[in-house]
Structures are given as C-alpha cells and as structure tokens.
C-alpha cells in the first residue's frame, strides 16, 4: 500500500508547480486525514509526496530536502506535539527556513497557539473547508 502511494506521489510534475510533502509524524497512524488532504491537493494540481506513518522529524526534513519541497504538511491526531517542535528546529538547522510547515488535524487550541508561536505557518482544524486548504497551499509556491 505504502509503495503504491509513493509511486503515485512520484508522478509527473503538476500544473501548479508546487511540491508538497504530506506526512504523519512519529508513530501516529491515524492516516485518514493525511490521505484525504493528499488526494485533495493532488486533484487540485499540486505535486504531493505522501510519506505515510512512522516518520521521524529527521526523516521528514530529509524527504523535504531530497524532494526539493515547497511546503511540509503534517497531519497530527491528538498527539504530544513536541515532535512538531523538533521538526521546526530541524527545518531551521538544515537551512530550509523558506519551507513553511503547515499542520492539520486534532490539535487542541492551546497547542495551536504554541505551535504558531514556534513557527508553524498555519494550522487547519478538522472540518476545514477543502477550498480554504487548496487556496492557502496555492500561495506557498517558491517558484512563482
């Protein structure tokens, strides 16, 4: 299943020319949200690289660098959000500061505020309209 998703992710460059990493973080395996958003963005003409579950912050940053991604999207389900903060630190350390980190999923308001303070570009709660997600990602291309 995962290989197949990766294959689909590696498909030809999209019309928008924006490369998006969509990933779970840590051992969180509630993949439905990530899969739905990946499909939504793909249908809207983004090039999506879906990493799936069991990704450490270092693996995600590595993939973003290797894939020359424009944006990293993290789907998180009621986790301990320290892993997202670790990801932010690695993004900065590796000089990917122009690659925004966007989060979605079940993240309590207090954690949302904290993540935004630490540098997450945007958090989409469950129930966010598809159009709003597409529109926001469309504004994140680095290649104009």
């Amino acid at each position: 299943m995962r290989a197949e998703a990766a294959e689909r992710g590696a498909a030809a460059r999209s019309d928008r020319g924006i490369r998006v990493i969509i990933s779970m973080i840590g051992l969180d395996s509630h993949t439905t949200g990530a899969q739905v958003v990946a499909a939504l963005l793909r249908d809207a003409g983004f090039e999506v690289i879906y990493l799936g579950p069991n990704q450490s912050p270092a693996m995600i940053v590595g993939a973003a660098r290797d894939e020359d991604a424009d944006v990293i999207g993290i789907s998180a389900h009621a986790s301990n959000f320290a892993l997202i903060e670790e990801l932010l630190a690695l993004v900065e350390r590796d000089g990917l500061k122009d690659v925004p980190v966007v989060c979605g999923g079940h993240i309590p308001p207090r954690q949302v505020r904290r993540l935004l303070e630490r540098g997450v570009a945007r958090v989409f709660p469950p129930g966010s309209p598809g159009d709003a997600i597409v529109e926001y990602f469309a504004g994140l291309g680095r290649r104009g």
Partner: peptide, 22 residues
C-alpha cells in the same frame, strides 16, 4: 500507547516523545 502498540520499548529513540501518549 503508540510505542507499546508497536512493540517498541519506552527507551527506543522513536518512543522518547510518545510514551504515554493516547
């Protein structure tokens, strides 16, 4: 929790920040 659901011990590097979560 997530680490022990996967039979990973609490002192595993991937478990460090997820022990006792959910």
């Amino acid at each position: 929790d997530r680490p022990s659901s996967s039979c990973i011990d609490a002192d595993h590097p991937m478990a460090r920040k997820e022990n006792g979560v959910l």
